Amino acid sequence: MVMLGDILAAARGSAGALERWLAHADPQLAQDTACAAKSVGLGIAGYARMAVADFSRFANEEDWATLVSSLRDSSDPGSTCLAAMVHWRLSAVGCRAHSIPQEAGAKDE
């Protein structure tokens, strides 16, 4: 069983391994992550680390409850946790200072 710390350590040491894992685990999430990462000048591993940091800082109680519930039912909590945090980051709506534009060329309102 792979734990979140193992996945993040692998991301630091081998971005390619993280990308291959994500492409295998959830191809659509991998594609969405690659697009979002590129839009902010990061690789997938950097984006994943940012997602974990942002989740820990900005996720609300409901987000945490959803994560904990999914971990409880998972046979692979590390991978489940990372995928959930990346998915959360992709869909998070927050203040302009901490948001990644959802569309290229998005304008401030």
Results as ranks from 00 to 15, higher is better:
S74E: 10
Q102N: 06
E62T: 15
G16Q: 00
S14P: 02
A30L: 02
S39P: 12
V2M: 07
L18S: 01
S91Q: 13
L42T: 09
L82C: 08
H98E: 15
G78S: 07
L67Q: 11
A34I: 00
D108Q: 09
I7Q: 09
A9I: 07
E61L: 10
K107S: 12
W21T: 06
E19V: 05
H24K: 05
S56L: 08
L18W: 12
I100C: 07
P77G: 03
S79A: 06
A84N: 03
D54I: 00
H98R: 14
E61S: 14
E109H: 04
A9T: 11
L82K: 02
T80E: 11
I100H: 08
L42H: 14
G13Y: 05
Q102V: 04
A104R: 10
L82I: 03
R89T: 14
M50Q: 15
V40Y: 07
A104F: 08
D63N: 07
R49D: 00
L29S: 03
M1F: 12
I7H: 05
R20K: 13
Q31C: 02
A92Y: 03
L71F: 00
P27H: 00
S56M: 13
S70F: 05
C95Q: 14
S74Q: 12
E103I: 01
L90V: 14
G16K: 02
H87A: 15
W64A: 10
A17N: 08
K38D: 14
W88H: 07
L8G: 08
V86F: 05
L71V: 06
Q102W: 10
Q31G: 00
L67I: 03
R72T: 14
M3G: 01
M3E: 13
L67W: 01
P27Q: 05
L4S: 09
A36W: 01
A53N: 11
W21Q: 08
V2E: 13
A84M: 10
A83L: 04
R12K: 14
K107N: 09
D32M: 08
V68W: 06
